[in-house]
Design a binder for these strands. Sequence first.
DNA 1: TAAAAATATAATAATATGATTATATATGAA
DNA 2: TTCATATATAATCATATTATTATATTTTTA
Lengths: 113, 113
Amino acid sequence: MNDFISRVEILKLIAHPVRITILQELSKGVKCVSDFEEFLEISQPNISQHLGALRRAGIIDFFIDGRLRCYFLKSPLVIDLLEIFNKEYPGELPGPECCPTTKKGTYPGERRR
Amino acid sequence: MNDFISRVEILKLIAHPVRITILQELSKGVKCVSDFEEFLEISQPNISQHLGALRRAGIIDFFIDGRLRCYFLKSPLVIDLLEIFNKEYPGELPGPECCPTTKKGTYPGERRR
DNA sequence: TAAAAATATAATAATATGATTATATATGAA
DNA sequence: TTCATATATAATCATATTATTATATTTTTA
């Protein structure tokens, strides 16, 4: 039903420095928790919590190898998102063309800003 | 300075149902606050706050036409992001191929999950 | 079978976010 | 000028998010 909201939830979840970093690593290949501990400067439980949240949202998943938990990317959206995240955007969009129409009339009248 | 963090901040800002809706509208053209009031079911001050936050982040900007404030998209990243946001993703990424290597050794041993 | 390693879960506390309400500002119209 | 319109700002409160600390679970190894 609420496709829109769940997409927003996914975005919101990804929009966190640690989780973006986790996803960037996973986009290169499988990683287990102790691998993350080596370069994320946060505690083990915190890593686990971030991984758990990403997992519950269906963004990543894991398999178990002995006592290792090996996480991998599941959501193809993440691949596209990371590409945009890393992309350079030189410049801004062109400003609005003259005089678009809204319910309130036609603007700009005098364009002061 | 911190390019990574500011990108995350932009993502975080966009990842909100009202703000995504605002940006989707602005991707179609200029809109003023009272235009938004017609289809966003939230209060005027709340709309103003969302617009203000997007503006402070440099994602949108406005010009003034009389007593209207006419907002428009500034960040090209948003265009790409909205495209992904609306894209359908059938299926998941293929699971990891056998036996990738981590600092901890080679896995999976027995893949139980 | 006891200890250790790898990881998760739960409880808590600090901080951030978001909506609401009330009020302020600026502009055009009467 | 005064009033109405369009919008912003500020203060407050409720809720959500995040990190921390402590503890539990599972599996391997000694």
